[in-house]
Amino acid sequence: MPTVFHPTIAAITLRGLLGRRRSLLIALPPALLLALTIGLRASTNINSSHDFGWPGVVLGQIGLVTLLPLTAMIIGTSVLGTEVDDSSILHLLATPVSRATVLTTKWIVASAATLVFAVVPIAIAAFIGTSGYVDNPGPLDMTFMPIKGDASEAVGVIVAAAVGAVVYSAFFLFLSVVTKRSVAVTLIYILVWESLLTRQVSGLRLLSIGQYELGLADQIGHLPNLGAHLTLGTSVVMSVAFTLFALIYGTRRLQSFRVSGEAA
């Protein structure tokens, strides 16, 4: 059984990932989310029904469904993809370290980085956005289900975000092993599949990581305007299945890693 985590690989990956300019770029969107949340919270009166509905939109539609996958995309496609691209991966693969260890370590690093850059800001935003709400009806989604304000909403969002970070990282990492144009493919997945198709065709939601997150968040702590459709069980099972598939198949592809470039 190969080890799951190799600290040296992790260290190199992190150093490569968090160059000055790139970490600034990655940190910009979460900073925006926090500013937005703080701004909204400060500008609205929590005891009035006026401000109702924004936490679901900000945490769900902006945080979970947009910020998280985009951050996971930038991180997930570069922890391995960049090295494959400039073939510095050869230095890593030309060691007795098992390829499974390489992949899982990269996955853990990507997940951790996504947790830091997307999940932590979302968590902070969740607490800022949902604490202290009492008994407000929810006119926007017409469900009239109140935010309980007992932190269960925040917990739901945070758990969903954490799970999402892990699953997205596995999936995007897998894509970067499988295709050279992983960013384009990832983008089509996010823009066309998750943002357009799965919203129109309900059957496809079963194959959308974003929907698993929303399902999780909604089941743990209901929040209006999340737009969740899947049940907890489906979300959990599908998340695990997605991750396992990505890791196992990704490892197999990495084990058969071939150098490219026929012309000498």
Binding site: L25, P29, T66, L70, M73, I74, T77, S78, G81, T82, D85, R181, S182, V183, A184, L187, I190, L191, S195
Partner: peptide, 12 residues
Amino acid sequence: AFATGAVAVFFF
């Protein structure tokens, strides 16, 4: 890859 990402992230 970075350029694609930058354009997408910015507009989206």
